[in-house]
Design a binder for these strands. Structure first.
Lengths: 214, 214
DNA sequence: TTTAAGTGTCAACAAGTGTACACACTGGAT
DNA sequence: ATCCAGTGTGTACACTTGTTGACACTTAAA
């Protein structure tokens, strides 16, 4: 992008620079309404500003790039989970602060979230499976966290996972809707945030009445 | 596929035959782990067994084909909703019969469901928007139906929609997981069915405790 | 019977795609 | 000081893609 092509065998600033540029470029392109398997290798290298063949210096093929994207996305997500966890623990209103904290991170890591949400079901096998696997991990972490709350500390793991999966699915769906609006549309964003809170609250109201391991 | 190419200007059995063949062929290809915008026009015509240019006799372009797929998918889905509705109304255990009825239809209309679930977030704009619009209609119908149940008949529309959206999102997510397993894997299917029932039950347990229009 | 709309065919194009190959420059380990 | 692994470049090839244009056959209406 900036001052890149210098001559024949130019040297980028740092080792591993271009690899990162490829990943970022992919996120950028995918954010613009196209799916991973509609993304061509050449298109990507064009975006990044290298010659097509240079791609293979960093990845054996697009599939591996896809896996790297999954990796990268969840690396960010895991950090977020940490943050959210501490935010929530120190709050009297866990649901409200959970939703708000999540929203903040969604805005910051826009393209990562976008990628996860849209390749989770769409797409081509390997990438999709990787996302599912990671998402199941997130669910497990959430299940553990849920066990700290009243009523749930005696629940069997299966029930905790059921609740966690319900929450994760709803939040992913809402996240995707937020990301689909232009970042400027604060009104829609606020409304969706409220929807998220309300759905979580409804779920939490069901918890005291649930008969575990039924 | 069967006895098609006869000669130069061959005549298919019935008018509108090939149009349907294109739609079905698209569903078939999309069921095999690829997304709509990774589907090429030539690939499709190859699958259907016509020459590339013949495609334009039926659709101005791939985008219109996409819209036709959405249309077709929801045509089936609406029928399903009718069925489910009557199934549920005549049942003492609405949740159980809802989930079971849904599962049956998911199996029967495999590729339609698949298409809806995977193009809902992935993909390229027009198709995605059309799916969202239709899905919002489904949500509205569900909201109306929910209003018949105890506790909810006095709820404001907004709250009904909140619950409906939660249910639809969860069910779509689970449906996609079912579709992702091979149809033969009855064990996984049964487990996911159970998960769906449990999630719906949890939601329904929250309902009596919900304070409407809060 | 003639005609026109509908639907199919083939040939051809320019543009885009993945990948192989040979070459060039850089920088750190030897 | 030399060498080599890493990373970039350009050229090249065969294949796929979307779309245009001219043509052929079928069927139903005029």
């Amino acid at each position: 992008m900036t001052e890149r092509r210098i001559g024949r065998g130019r040297r980028p600033g740092v080792r591993g620079d271009t690899r990162k540029a490829l990943i970022d470029g992919a996120f950028r392109l995918l954010d613009g309404n196209k799916s991973f398997d509609g993304l061509s290798q050449r298109e990507l290298t064009r975006e990044v500003g290298i010659v097509p063949t240079a791609f293979y210096r960093h990845f054996p093929g697009m599939q591996e790039l896809g896996l790297a994207l999954v990796d990268e996305s969840f690396r960010g997500l895991r950090q977020i989970i940490q943050d959210v966890r501490t935010d929530v623990r120190s709050s009297k209103r866990p649901i409200g602060s959970f939703a708000k904290s999540l929203l903040k991170h969604i805005r910051n890591q826009r393209d990562r979230f976008r990628f996860i949400a849209s390749e989770r079901f769409g797409g081509s096998g390997v990438v999709r499976d990787a996302i599912r696997r990671e998402l199941r991990l997130v669910q497990s972490e959430l299940a553990i966290e849920l066990a700290r709350f009243p009523y749930m500390n005696e629940w069997p793991a299966e029930d905790l996972h059921m609740v966690a999966s319900l929450m994760v699915n709803s939040m992913v769906a809402i996240a995707e809707e937020i990301l689909d609006r232009s970042a400027a549309d604060k009104a829609a964003e606020a409304e969706l945030l409220r929807l998220a809170e309300r759905q979580l609250r409804l779920i939490s109201l069901g918890i005291p009445a649930w008969k575990p391991s039924s």
